[in-house]
Structure formats: C-alpha cells, structure tokens
C-alpha cells in the first residue's frame, strides 16, 4: 500500500512552533522553510510532504482529503467547524486565549452590544449562551481599532501577551476559551493508511 502523506501546516507562529515537534518525530523539511516560496515541500521522508497554508484553509484541505493531517489552531476549528474531521491531539503549541476586550468603563449594559471580530460563529455562540443580544461587525484584522473609532463596543480576539491591547488603550474583559494547536486527521486517511499514520500521530503527539 502506498502511503504518501500530506501534512497541512498553518503558516506563521504555528508553523514555527510545529517544526521542532516534527523534528522530534524525525521529519524535517528538505529545504529551509524561510528561504523558499514553495507551498508544497518535500521532507527527509520520501513519502511525507508539507503543505503551507492559511489557517482557515487547513481544515478544508483535510476534510476533502487533499491533506491527510493538519496542524491548526482550536480557534479555527471552532469557527469553521470540525465536523467530518478527527482531532487527534492537543499539541500544546501556539497557546493563547480567545477573549473579549474593550475600553475600560465604556461598555454599557443597555441595548444591543456591538461586537467586532473575525470569529463570528464563536462570538454568536458565546454571547448567545450569556443571553445577550449582539450586532456583529465582521473585520479581518487590526481589531483594536474598532472600539477606538466607535465602530464597536467590544472586540473578540486572540490575546497572547496583551501588549497590543494595552498599547491601544484596551483591556481584556473575559476569557472565552484557551486556544492551542491541534493535530487533525482525515477520516478516510486514517483507515487507508493506518499502519503508517497511527505511529506518526502518536510520535507527533508525544504519546509514546
């Protein structure tokens, strides 16, 4: 049986923190990742390839079976849905928190709250559980600006150190969820490539 594994990686911080895990599992890119513009990379294993993608695309590649495995933030899985995927392990890398934040003493409790975020599904569910009616303003970046420009009352965003929030006069309010990177697996791949994939997953997740 042929193996030919494709592992989809999220570019940026997750990619940087994934490489040592991969190295521990004996997999290294055939060329330095920083120096190449290739999106599909060979490795020191003939039958393992790495695909470098945007986070939100990683679950899509794995769901369709274009990639067998993926490493992606829990935030992406929650936002775009993880139906039809297996979530094999918490890799404990690229840790941060999904939080609400805003300008201190500015948020009123009356009326519909305006929330700016990239994560519209998570946000809707979170405030829904709190019984709070909200208006969502979908933004793609620089969320800290939204309360300053009175585009929104609060934001929902990933917070690591909190420096960007503070630099813009915002403070974190509540933690919605702790976030870390997860190893996801295609359902058909795990069945077709079992003898190869199971040990590889275990060694990536440091289960042995």
């Amino acid at each position: 049986m042929k193996n030919n594994i494709v592992l989809a990686l999220t570019k940026g911080r997750i990619l940087r923190e994934s490489l040592p895990l991969l190295a521990d599992a004996g997999v290294e890119p055939a060329e330095p990742i920083d120096a190449t513009r290739k999106l599909l990379l060979a490795t020191n294993h003939e039958d393992i390839k790495l695909a470098i993608l945007r986070g939100a695309d990683v679950p899509t590649y794995v769901k369709y079976g274009a990639a067998d495995l993926g490493i992606v933030g829990k935030d992406v899985l929650l936002e775009y849905g993880s139906e039809g995927l297996y979530e094999a392990a918490d890799l404990g890398i690229a840790c941060c928190r999904l939080m609400t934040a805003g300008i201190p003493n500015r948020v009123s409790n009356v009326g519909t709250l305006r929330v700016a975020t990239k994560f519209v599904n998570i946000t809707r569910e979170y405030f829904g559980k709190k019984g709070k009616q909200i208006d969502i303003v979908k933004l793609y970046g620089a969320l800290e600006l939204a309360p300053l420009m009175d585009l929104a009352d609060v934001i929902v965003d990933l917070v690591d150190t909190g420096d960007t929030l503070r630099a813009n006069g915002l403070i974190p309010f509540e933690e919605i969820l702790p976030i870390s990177s997860r190893l996801i697996v295609n359902k058909a791949s795990i069945r077709q490539k079992t003898p190869f994939l199971l040990p590889f997953i275990d060694s990536l997740a440091k289960l042995n």
Binding site: Y86, E87, A89, D90, R182
Partner: peptide, 9 residues
C-alpha cells in the same frame, strides 16, 4: 464523534 482527544479529556 470527532475523536477529539483534547475535548474528551
């Protein structure tokens, strides 16, 4: 269903 070991834990 999602075989999510972390969520299960």
């Amino acid at each position: 269903k999602r075989k999510s070991i972390p969520d299960l834990e």
